[in-house]
Amino acid sequence: MSQISNAIATRDNGPAAVVEQYRSDLALVMPSHLQARVGAWIRNTQGLLRRDEKLMEAAQNDVGQFIAVLMDAGRLGLEPGTEQYYLVPRWNKKKRATEVTGVRGYQGEIELMYRAGAVSSVVVEVVRDNDNFQFRPGRDERPIHDIDWDLTAEQRGDLRLVYAYAVMKDGATSKVVVLNKGHIAKARSKSDSANKDWSPWNTDEESMWMKTGAHRLAKWVPTSAEYMREQLRAKADIATEQRPMTLPVSIPLPAPGSVDTNDEGPIDAEFVDEP
């Protein structure tokens, strides 16, 4: 049993109560922009448990696992139970019970890209059968995607493609990622819970397509705040290198014959205590 599970064993085993007990630990791992609203973050999580019986059951089966998932969401600065970070009950074969696992959503992937500070905008969009989509790598900088917004999603047709790209701060376009049904099927096959009714692959399929596209884009775009710190350090180093050197002040030499040759040089000083 993990250390966090041992600690919980001696406490109230109710997941909602345990989340409150770990308030200070969650705040400690959160980015600064979330620390001020850790109370609301915790209340939203407790609300999720009250509204979703399957999630509550999975959290009760292994409260330590549930807290570990929340710690991961908090460390990333993402909201659990949203399209930033899904809380998903997953069947654990060894425990023969469901437990809570965390799945980063497409909005979470995008949030991490923005927070790194390298991009000015991120585009992630699905293409349906009746949309007009054109993109030729090497010729087109960005995809051309025409959508008839008067149509519903069903009228636009089945999901066909998903694409993602970022516009960097300097105006350049990142690598454009385009995934088809085969790519999505391969990504879905790696999910243990994809065939479950409560899986986001079944409850919110379009979002999972977008999540897959955003996740693939993350390989080409900085998603860590460490990137911004490296940029700031680089700028500081450049500023130091470009700082003008201070030249020594030129002292004029005395005119010939103006030097007192009887000068015996400096006199040794003596420190005297004042009365």
Rank of each mutant, 00 (worst) to 15 (best):
M1R: 10
S2C: 11
R11W: 13
R11C: 11
E20F: 05
E20I: 10
E20V: 14
R23V: 05
A27N: 09
V29P: 10
S32V: 15
A36V: 07
V38S: 08
W41Q: 04
L48V: 06
L49W: 01
R50Y: 08
R50M: 14
R50P: 05
L55W: 03
M56R: 10
Q65L: 06
Q65V: 09
L70P: 05
D72R: 15
R75T: 10
L76A: 11
L78H: 07
Q84Y: 08
R90S: 12
V100S: 00
G102Y: 02
V103R: 10
Y106M: 07
G117W: 00
S120L: 14
S121Q: 14
S121G: 11
E125A: 14
N130G: 12
D131N: 14
R136D: 11
E141L: 14
I144N: 12
D148I: 02
T152P: 05
R156I: 09
D158M: 12
L159E: 05
R160T: 09
R160V: 02
A164D: 06
Y165K: 00
K169R: 12
K169Q: 06
K169H: 03
K169T: 06
A172W: 00
S174K: 04
K175W: 00
G182P: 00
H183T: 11
A185I: 03
A185R: 14
K186F: 10
A187D: 10
R188E: 11
R188K: 15
R188N: 11
K190F: 09
S191R: 07
S193E: 13
D197A: 15
W198S: 13
W198A: 08
T203Y: 12
D204H: 14
E205L: 11
M208S: 02
W209R: 03
G213Y: 12
E230I: 04
E230G: 05
Q231N: 04
Q231Y: 01
R233Y: 00
A236S: 01
R243V: 00
P244K: 01
V249Q: 11
S250K: 13
L253W: 04
G257T: 03
G257R: 10
S258N: 07
S258K: 09
D260M: 03
T261Q: 15
D263M: 06
G265C: 05
I267C: 04
A269W: 07
E274K: 15
E274T: 15
P275S: 07
